[in-house]
């Protein structure tokens, strides 16, 4: 309950407006082997900070390696390391296509 409230107060979390088509792409939307670049990290409690401390910072190139056989978690590659994260966290990492960058 308290957590939800914090979300709303937190300006860094985009308000869900239901405009699915305009929604920015996240790591969650990538297909295997697809490459992209991080544009923003959203905050959900301390999760955004944690992702950034692992090296997922805006501007960082990344490659979606594969998802686990059961669909979750995901394995991604950023320079210097392979990371494993659940879809719930992958949703916080906003990306743009490498080509567009």
């Amino acid at each position: 309950m308290k957590k939800r409230l914090q979300h709303k107060m937190d300006p860094a979390v985009p308000q869900s407006t239901g405009e699915a088509s305009k929604r920015r792409r996240t790591v969650n939307d990538l297909a295997p082997c697809e490459q992209a670049k991080v544009t923003a990290i959203h905050h959900d409690e301390g999760m955004g900070q944690r992702l950034m401390s692992l090296g997922l910072v805006p501007g960082c190139p990344l490659q979606f390696v594969r998802s686990a056989p059961l669909g979750d978690p995901l394995m991604i590659k950023i320079p210097g390391c392979l990371l494993c994260l659940r879809r719930a966290e992958a949703r916080l990492v906003e990306i743009e296509d490498e080509i567009a960058a």
Binding site: K3, E45, M47, R50, L51, L54, P73, M75, C81, L82, L83, C84, L85, R86, A88, E89
Partner: peptide, 10 residues
């Protein structure tokens, strides 16, 4: 427990 993350470096 709030939802626990699972972020791990491989």
């Amino acid at each position: 427990t709030p939802r626990q993350p699972f972020i791990m470096e491989m």
